[in-house]
Computed example of a mutant assay.
Amino acid sequence: MSAGERASTPAAVPPVDPVDDRPSATAVEAGTLRRALTALWHDPPAVAGTVVLLVLLVVGLAGQWLAPAGTNDVDVDEMLRPPSGAHPFGTDELGRDVLSRVLVAARVSLQVGLVSVGIALAVGVTVGLLAGWYGGWTDNVLMRGMDVLFAFPVLLLAVAIVAVLGPGLVTATTAIGVVYTPIFARVTRASVLAVREQVFVRAAVSIGTSDLRILRRHVLPNIAAPLIVQTSLSLAFAILSEAALSFLGLGVQPPAPAWGRMLYDGRGFVTDAWWLGFFPGAAIFLTVLAFNLVGDALRDVLDPRQLTVSEARRSTR
């Protein structure tokens, strides 16, 4: 098979027979999972990113128990101590253990990232499905609303929403979810416009299948690939946005630890206590990098247009 024929074949998302009453998403999800796992296994950067994410997940779930000290245990005799055996990441201006605060803050970043992207995914996919399937005035009304949100810079819109609702973890999560909704709506709409013209979807319409059933059993499973990729990439940007809001004092409020807030607190000690900003900054850097590495690998395998490139890359290793 030639490269052009291979790129035009919907290998990542096999069509679903509309007259087959079996669960259509099962085969698609199984094939997608196998391809994703194969891509991650053969891509060393993606493997490294996956390992980092697994470690981060463990830290996020068990950070409170892994922390060697309390996150708010003040000890004035241990103020601004450099990294040592007793305090591997040093202490801050109040004598609190930086390692403990970094570990506990991982849960906050993961929570905000997962929940906010979950909100954006649920709302954006719903809007995109309705706009792409029905078209006409429904498409115009819904997508023009998304365009209004998309016209604002992400951080500026998030700051505006938090300023109206008030700072805090819940409002920061909601704001990040709102600002990333248009991205998922656009990706979903574009995919639906392509899938709804496929023969298996037209066949389902011709036999009188309801719109809800077609969208749930035939359209949504066949547009899962770009949504998976967009989700993995959006998680990285959501964590960055949470860190930015916390740095500005609009996210998690003291004394609860947050990576962005720790960066803000350490900005005045750059020359005297470099570790205050280095370790939370390194945590943000590694987390975002890991999500991007995994997202790039998923895009290579789930995007049919990238199949030739990824195969050529693996053949040279």
Rank of each mutant, 00 (worst) to 15 (best):
M1L: 10
M1Q: 09
A3G: 04
A7S: 10
A7K: 11
V13T: 11
D17T: 07
D17W: 03
D17G: 07
V19A: 10
D20G: 09
A30W: 06
T32V: 04
R34G: 00
A39T: 05
A39S: 11
D43W: 01
V52T: 08
L54I: 13
V58P: 03
G60F: 02
L66I: 12
A69K: 13
R81V: 14
R81L: 14
P83F: 08
G85T: 11
G85N: 06
H87I: 02
P88Q: 02
T91K: 02
D92T: 01
S100M: 09
V102N: 03
V102H: 00
G113P: 11
A122V: 13
L129M: 07
W133Q: 11
M143H: 06
F150S: 06
L155P: 01
A160H: 12
V164Y: 12
L165F: 02
G166W: 01
T173K: 09
I176Q: 13
Y180P: 12
Y180F: 15
P182V: 11
I183L: 15
T188M: 04
A190V: 02
R202C: 03
V205C: 04
I207T: 15
I207G: 08
T209K: 15
R216I: 04
P221I: 06
A224P: 02
P226L: 04
T231A: 09
S232L: 08
L233H: 05
I239Y: 09
L245A: 10
F247G: 04
G251P: 02
P254E: 15
G260H: 09
M262Y: 13
Y264G: 15
D265M: 12
D265S: 14
G266L: 12
G268H: 14
W275N: 03
L276F: 03
F279G: 00
T287S: 07
L289K: 00
G295C: 05
R299W: 06
D303Q: 00
R314F: 00
R314M: 00
S315T: 09
S315N: 07
T316Q: 10
